[in-house]
């Protein structure tokens, strides 16, 4: 019973992938053998998943305008080349006065943020690596199944609720990778990056609509490292990334997706369409800029941009209410097209 209580307290850590490998495996071993904890774990996962139903809300445009106005920077200042940091020029006239006022506020209130944290300067430890070796598994327990990708079906049935996804590349030279995850037990699927079962599994991880953002971000980073190699190029991976780019509510995830698409070649028409859609419709200008960079990469790699793409670029370059950076980037890309 005491073990169940301890296990219960560990479940949030399991959900956030914050447990070490040994603790995680021990936890799963217990959950598998304890009906009460298995039910509890199922409820935790359902709760975590339902929390994902809260949509992202867009920031009203007036907030940015007010911010830029407050600090004395106009929207147009974003496209003015920066002054050299070695030989800084004079600041805009409003700034020294504003800064003096700000300094006075700092002195008066003693600093808002750091005053409350003066004994703990903000230092963030590096994140733990997400790539772990199968060979170093300290436990050889029955609940961790290692399956070869060639032995399982590439058709994933029933939209399984997979959790705690981790990626494995024990030996970078052997062209074998692995994906570990929890389903009804801990499973590691290993195989070549080009193996269809692995490709489908990775695509599924990328596309799952109830995936937590950190898992999806990790998945995208890992896909980028693995599938940027032209020898591993697979259109299904590119399609999955394109869906993430179109559908994910987290802008950070969409940015990662477009950055990954940028590095993948050769680009399919689906990839190009997804980039165009992002450029036209994504609410976040950072994503739109990344989409432009990706299109620029395609053009430089010799991919001919079709009339639809060029029309979109022209529209963006001349759109009055578009972010100035997006407009400049679109114009630059148009000028690069022969």
């Amino acid at each position: 019973m005491a073990e169940c209580d301890a296990m219960n307290e560990q479940m949030p850590l399991l959900l956030t992938e914050s447990l070490g490998r040994e603790e995680r495996e021990r936890a799963h071993q217990h959950i598998e053998n304890c009906a009460a904890c298995a039910a509890e774990w199922k409820a935790y996962r359902a709760t975590w998943s339902e929390l994902g139903e809260l949509p992202e809300v867009e920031v009203p445009a007036r907030v940015k305008e007010q911010f830029l106005s407050t600090i004395g920077a106009s929207r147009d200042s974003k496209v003015i080349p920066m002054r050299s940091r070695l030989a800084p020029g004079p600041r805009p006239s409003a700034l020294p006065r504003w800064f003096a006022q700000a300094a006075a506020v700092v002195i008066l209130v003693g600093g808002s943020y750091y005053a409350g944290n003066r004994t703990a300067p903000l230092r963030v430890l590096p994140s733990p690596a997400t790539i772990q070796s199968v060979e170093q598994t300290p436990y050889s327990i029955a609940e961790t199944r290692v399956l070869n990708a060639s032995a399982i079906s590439p058709n994933i049935e029933g939209r399984p609720n997979i959790q705690n996804v981790q990626f494995v590349d024990a030996d970078a030279s052997d062209n074998q990778i692995g994906v570990s995850f929890d389903v009804t037990s801990r499973v590691t699927v290993t195989g070549a990056p080009t193996d269809k079962s692995l490709v489908r599994l990775l695509s599924y991880v990328l596309e799952r609509d109830n995936s937590t953002s950190p898992s999806r971000s990790n998945a995208i980073d890992w896909v980028r490292r693995t599938y940027s190699d032209p020898n591993h190029a697979d259109p299904e991976i590119a399609d999955a990334l394109a869906k993430v780019l179109r559908n994910d509510t987290h802008e950070g995830v969409r940015i990662r997706a477009v950055e990954t698409l940028k590095d993948m070649s050769p680009a399919s028409s689906g990839t190009r369409d997804a980039l165009i859609d992002a450029l036209k419709n994504d609410p976040n200008p950072a994503v739109r800029i990344k989409a432009l960079e990706a299109l620029s990469n395609l053009a430089k790699a010799g991919t001919a941009l079709d009339a639809k793409t060029i029309d979109t670029l022209r529209a963006k370059a001349s759109q009055d209410d578009e972010n100035p950076y997006v407009r400049v980037k679109a114009a630059e890309l148009l000028s690069e097209i022969p």
């Binding site: 359902a46 199944r145 994933i156 029933g158 939209r159 399984p160 609720n161």
Partner: peptide
């Protein structure tokens, strides 16, 4: 309702 499992495996 948590659906799905590892049947495909």
């Amino acid at each position: 309702d948590v659906g799905g499992g590892g049947r495909w495996l």
